[in-house]
Simulated scan of single mutants.
Amino acid sequence: MPRLDGKTAVVTGANSGLGYEGTRAFAAKGATVVMACRSVERGEDAADKIRAEAGGGNGDSDSDGDLDVRECDLASLDSVTGFADGLADDYDAVDVLCNNAGVMAIPRSETEDGFETQFGVNHLGHFALTGRLFSLLRDAEGVDGEARIVTQSSGAHESGEMDFSDLNWEESYGKWKAYGRSKLANLLFAYEIQRRIDAANREGDAPIDIRSVACHPGYADTNLQLRTAAESGNPLMKVGMRLANAVLGQDAATGALPMLYAATADVDGGAYVEPGGLMNMRGHPTIGRSNDASYNSEDASRLWEYSTEAAGVEFPF
């Protein structure tokens, strides 16, 4: 990773797992990291731990960037709006936005705004956040002259299927199918926003210097699996998840590498960064390809139109 002094990165879900490791790495390279967390208390605890590991950082040494913990609950569009408005008040630009936070395979529930939670948090919350931070991204110098939008997906996108007649799973619900759909939606969004940026740059006078990149971490040992087990209410599932994490999972720091690569390496807009090892579930980052459904431009456009209305966000193209 290059030095990131003077750069601002926003990371959702920054207090644990991949978000924590990404935050730690950005800060170690000198970036100011806005830690967008559902719980400010847990976010502050994570920030204190990063500062302690860095030797008392938070700007006190040449190698450590500032950490700014702020509340952002992706299950609440009002919270997303408040977070974005606060950033606009305090920051001139955002160089990197990592749409990282998520929930996985939980029993059906709804967000504050009435959307199925996995779809609402994993996709719609990040769609709204990206739209509301777009002007700050557009005003940034970026890592290499272009700001980055990095959207974290999952290999589970391959089991996802877009059903626009029941996006919120009101007719039927399968928690793993819903997770797969939300991760497919992440990719449809990541590629579609790049298409729209490219189209605007072909047609407009003022260039939009923003690059959208998708990624997935492989099988990383994080608390995402443990939360899935806890939500299931099945104690055997909790034991199974812990065992699977120990045997199959790579550590969270390695799992965060595709996100960091997507955010700072010389990759094309619309790229898909994934682990290059066994079954693309382990190892160091490489440029790969997601499944054919994720490149369906008709589905992407339809999802975009739905999301614009549902999230109440218009992108300034």
Rank of each mutant, 00 (worst) to 15 (best):
T23R: 02
T23S: 10
R24C: 11
R24A: 15
A25I: 02
F26V: 14
A27W: 05
A27K: 06
A27N: 04
A31K: 09
V33G: 04
V34E: 05
V34F: 09
V34C: 04
M35C: 10
M35P: 04
M35Y: 09
A36G: 04
C37R: 02
C37L: 04
C37P: 04
S39M: 00
E41H: 02
E41Y: 00
R42I: 06
R42F: 04
G43T: 08
G43P: 12
E44P: 05
D45S: 13
A46I: 06
A46L: 05
D48Q: 10
R51Y: 00
E53D: 13
E53A: 07
E53Q: 10
A54D: 09
G55H: 00
G57A: 12
G57L: 02
N58P: 01
G59R: 03
D60W: 05
S61M: 01
D62E: 12
D62W: 07
D64L: 01
L67D: 03
V69C: 00
V69I: 05
R70A: 10
E71K: 13
E71S: 09
E71P: 01
C72V: 14
D73N: 15
L74I: 04
S76Y: 11
D78K: 15
V80W: 01
G82V: 05
D85P: 06
D85S: 14
D85Y: 03
D85Q: 14
D89H: 11
D89E: 15
D89Q: 14
Y91P: 06
A93C: 01
A93R: 11
A93T: 07
D95Q: 03
V96Q: 04
V96R: 03
C98T: 08
N99R: 06
N100R: 06
N100L: 04
A101D: 01
G102Y: 13
G102S: 10
G102Q: 11
V103C: 05
V103K: 01
V103I: 15
R108S: 07
R108G: 04
E110V: 15
D113P: 03
G114W: 05
G114T: 12
G114P: 09
F115E: 08
F115R: 08
E116M: 11
E116S: 12
T117E: 14
Q118E: 13
Q118G: 12
Q118F: 14
F119G: 06
G120S: 12
N122H: 00
N122G: 01
H123V: 00
H123P: 09
H123C: 00
L124Y: 11
L124G: 08
F127N: 04
F127Y: 12
A128T: 08
A128G: 07
L129E: 05
L129Q: 13
T130R: 10
T130P: 06
G131D: 02
G131C: 04
G131Q: 08
L133F: 03
L133D: 02
F134W: 15
S135N: 14
L136D: 05
L137D: 09
D139K: 07
A140Y: 09
E141T: 12
V143W: 07
V143Y: 11
D144G: 13
D144A: 14
G145E: 11
A147S: 13
A147N: 00
A147F: 00
R148H: 02
R148K: 10
I149H: 01
V150P: 10
V150L: 02
Q152H: 07
S153G: 09
S154L: 06
G155A: 15
A156W: 10
H157W: 12
H157G: 10
E158I: 13
